[in-house]
């Protein structure tokens, strides 16, 4: 009986979604703002990657909100898991192959993540993607070198510093240009590394912030709280 009711409810929801979506023309522009971003975005922001110009400049305040949500999640997890005294994993060291492979691969992954967020205004990717790649490098290091730990204090200070850089850049923009995250630096020559005004600063800050937050989450989860 319960299954029949749930299937019935699901089909009602499916019909509702179908009816509401089927009248929207697929792919047709619904507002003019998207066209403006596509046509004027590169001239206005100097960023070759259109997605980045939207994420950091046009919707920069939303991005600050997203980073804050991630921060609150990390803090909540640390508060829930980090209360009891921590002991770490039972110390069975990783195998020779795993440990040495991690030593070789770990810096390469870090380099890849750094490349992704430092070139966020030129190539696909950005602060969030690069930060997650860096966090996955720390996952690998926890698999390979089980007895080592990165200090929580370091994660915390990197994360706070990155958040401070983001907010300070925005506030300087507010003081100089009249609104939060206004473009205070010149756009520079397009397609070069030092271009697009404040975008590289913001994206490097986001990359460090996301990377340290997610690595801290993994760190908190991996430690045993008995």
């Amino acid at each position: 009986m319960r299954k029949i009711i749930s299937v019935l409810l699901l089909s009602i929801v499916a019909v509702g979604i179908y009816l509401s979506v089927s009248h929207i023309p697929f792919g047709a522009p619904k507002t003019k703002v998207g066209g403006h971003y596509v046509e004027q975005g590169m001239e206005e922001t100097g960023a070759a990657n259109m997605v980045t110009s939207v994420v950091v400049i046009y919707r920069g305040f939303d991005t600050l909100g997203e980073v804050t949500v991630l921060f609150i999640a990390a803090v909540g997890l640390a508060a829930v898991l980090g209360i009891a005294g921590q002991q770490g994993f039972p110390r069975e060291p990783a195998s020779f192959v795993l440990r040495n492979a991690c030593v070789v691969i770990f810096p390469l992954i870090l380099l890849c993540g750094t490349y992704i967020f430092a070139h966020g205004h030129l190539t696909p990717g950005g602060g969030f993607q690069g930060g997650v790649v860096i966090a996955s490098a720390f996952v690998l290091s926890y698999l390979g070198g089980r007895e080592r730990r990165i200090s929580k204090r370091l994660f915390g200070s990197v994360e706070s510093l990155a958040g401070l850089v983001f907010v300070t850049t925005g506030l300087i923009g507010l003081a100089v240009g009249g609104y939060f995250l206004s473009r205070i630096l010149p756009n520079g020559r397009p397609y070069s590394l030092l271009s697009a005004g404040i975008i590289p600063i913001i994206y490097i800050a986001i990359g460090f912030k996301v990377g340290s937050e997610l690595a801290g989450i993994i760190d908190n989860l991996i430690e045993e709280t008995k």
Partner: peptide, 26 residues
């Protein structure tokens, strides 16, 4: 949409899997 692809591969395939595996361990 290479930006979204990167985020999906890094978050969905790598990090979420790792967090779930750690959760199962516990």
């Amino acid at each position: 949409a290479p930006d979204v692809a990167m985020a999906e591969a890094a978050v969905g395939a790598a990090l979420t899997t790792a967090i779930f595996v750690v959760a199962i361990r516990r």
